[in-house]
Structures are given as C-alpha cells and as structure tokens.
Amino acid sequence: MPNWNRLQTNSFLECSARDRAVGLVDEGSFVELGGPFDRLVSPHLVALGEAVENDDGIVTGVGRIGARPVFVISQEGRFIGGSVGEVGGAKMVGIIDMAIDFNDRLVAEFPDLPPSARPLVAISFETGGVRLHEANAGLLAHAEVMDALQRARHKVPVVALIGSRIGCFGGMGFVAAATDAIVMSEFGRLGLTGPEVIEQEMGKDEFDASNRALVYRTTGGRHKYVMGDANFLVDDTVAAFRAQLADLCALPVSSFEAMRRIGSPELVEKQLRGVALAAELKPSDARDVWRHAGNNDPVGLADGPLADFRKSVRRLAL
C-alpha cells in the first residue's frame, strides 16, 4: 500500500489507479475487491496474444469518508489506454450493485440513517472508452454500466472524478455524463469522440489532434467548467479531489439532482437550449463560447493560474 499521507500532496494526474483509489478515501480504509491476486484477466486479450493485467486495468473496492461507505472504481490509463472491456465492465457493475444492495439493506434496517452514512460511488475515470479488442463484449460492458447507474438513481449518488492523463472519452464519456456530479482538474479532459477520432473523421483542418492547446480548450477541465459539464474544478492534488468528494459526502442523494446533466425533462430542455445557442452563436473556437458567457479575455483567463481562474470566470448560463 502506498503511504496515504504522502499520496495526498501528490499530483492526481500522476497517480496510478490504485494510488487514486487508496488516497480518495480515509487513511487505511480502502479494501480492494477483485484485486490483482484474484487474477481477473481478460480472456479476449489472452486469445489475441495481447499483454494482460490481473485487475484488467480497473481497481475496485470500498473505503470510508467519515461515516460514509464509499465504493470506489478507478481506471488505469497506462493499461491499454484505460479501455473498458468485459472483465473491467463487470467489475464496475459489480461494485455499483454492491453499493446499491448495501444501501437497500442499511436503509431497511436503519431508516433514520443520516445521508452522510449511506453508500456513495466514486468513479475515477481514465479511459478512451470501449476496448476495441473485445468488440461487442466491450460495448455491452458499457451498456451494463449505464444500466447500473440507472439502478442507482435516487438511491446512491455516483460522483465522477476526472483528472488523469487519458481523460474520459468514448463510451465512458457518456457514462460520466450520466453520473450525478463531475469533479475535474484543469488537466482532466472529458468528451465523447476523442481528439484523434475527430481528426481522422473530419480532417486536420477541422480539428488538429496534435495541437494540445486546442484539444484542452475544447475538452479540458477549465472549458468543461465554463460549460457547466463539470460541477467542480479542483487543484491537481489527491487531497483536493478528496476534499471535494468529502464535501459531497455530506449531501443526501436528493441534493445531487441539481448537479446532473441529464435525466429529467427540465435537463433535456436545458440541453436543447445549449444546442440552440450553438446554432445561433456558430462558435469557431471554445473561446467564442467563453466570451459569450461574459469572459472578455478568454486567452488570459485560460493561461492564468487556476486560483485566479476560479475567482474571475463567468460560467455559461443556459
């Protein structure tokens, strides 16, 4: 086990999936379930002669923040780009279902249990989405995770934490959008179609994936915060992500409704207002939207220290 106290000051961006899982919950409380010694390797990769990992690139387990049981899923971008296949998807579903079952049992037995002692799911995303090697099994895994999130609705809050190297793209971008709250750092990236895929489909003139500044100002944490896709923008340390998660742990599940992106007729209408605004504004760059939101110096705002950004940024009102 890594040293918990040292982990807190570490860059979240730099942390492995296991370090994030351990550091996000209270010291010494993380218990890994389905860990490397259980040897849950992907049979598809074995068949293809590709390197395997004993946790299939996803760390799952449970810990505590205060009195609240926190069920943790943490994806490892260094193993095949954090891609989610059959085994990893099943691990995610298993942990979400475990949180729901535990919640149901607790509430049945202790109806007066305060919200801050009821289960919560935290997902630290680092993934490009479906593991292409696993084809339909990988796609199905995504659908099953989506389904599990629906089962958790109004029972167990699901919080997304995005601040790792790969970001959160592809099918897992949809999954993140379906969670109750999204916490990002400025190094986090969130999107549906990944930059390389956009370039491949639409051409380099439309989107140059090697232009990291462009990629980040289209998918990065600061932009997602302006757009309202991310609810919270925190510093790049494990402690900062953990502190935000701990704040959320104080809230009842009902309080998360207002943070969601999808899942109600009102939210659908809000999304449609966004579509209408895009049609009207015809932005050629993310900066145009920042300006529309009331930020007069989007370039300076993007380049300045994060603390200044948080203080002075205007977020898009839809």
Partner: peptide, 18 residues
C-alpha cells in the same frame, strides 16, 4: 506477506510476490 507492484503499461510490467 504478499505484494503487488507495477502497471502493465507499454514497456512496463506488474509483479506479484507471494
């Protein structure tokens, strides 16, 4: 006791000692 270390990234490996 047993121990685990590493990630199977490109050019990397995981080690389990038991």
């Amino acid at each position: 006791r047993r121990a685990h270390c590493g990630v199977v990234g490109s050019g990397d490996l995981e080690v389990l000692l038991e």
